[in-house]
Amino acid sequence: MNAAIPFSAQLINLFASVILLLAFAMLAQRRVMALVNLFALQGLTLCLSTLVVAVTTGQTHLYWSAGLTLLLKALLLPWILHRLIRRLQVKWEVESLINIPATMLVGIALVIIAFNVTQPISELSSTISRGTLGIALASVMLAFLMMITRTKAIPQVVGFLAMENGLFLAATSATYGMPMVVELGIALDVLIGVIILGVFFFQIRDQFDSLDIRHMEKLKDN
């Protein structure tokens, strides 16, 4: 019955699902190191899915994107984050504002919303992997959820980067890649962003003796 979906699309679907699963795993994760590892794994999956798209469509610039993803998101950024965590001696626990099961339920609701929103677009898609757009949006929203529910700086940043992963999935799988210049620019921005954040972490820790964002609730309108 599913014979109409070519094998490559099945693979992309599989990778997309794994990315979604990893997004949930990150949402549920309680340990900072494991969170970073999950992020690296998501980057790796993203790289594989990009590679499948590249092989299927024969677009050479997607090979570059895949390589860039592997280098940046699966290796470099996790390495930087690992170093930061060790240098800053961050406490291992990730603290959440809402308890994790509740976060998961909200997450499911977000996935449903994302799927609903992208449904009409997926039907228009000419690419072989049309369902992935919904998954990409869902991953973005889950990462967003992670950013709002976490109280520590590093999980928030991982959320920020995971959001970028979701966007990248949308760019590669749903539209077969943005123009190369744009992808390079995005990669550069992400890298600079992380470096700036690294600098920032030290500043925050020096000021507050902790990376808990809850210290930073002084600025309010009253």
């Binding site: 979906i5 679907n13 997309a16 949930f24 996935v111 449903i112 997926s122 369902g131 998954i135």
Partner: peptide, 12 residues
């Protein structure tokens, strides 16, 4: 399980 169901609806 719910994710499986959703993925089923969306992708397949």
């Amino acid at each position: 399980a719910v994710l499986g169901l959703l993925v089923r609806l969306m992708l397949e």
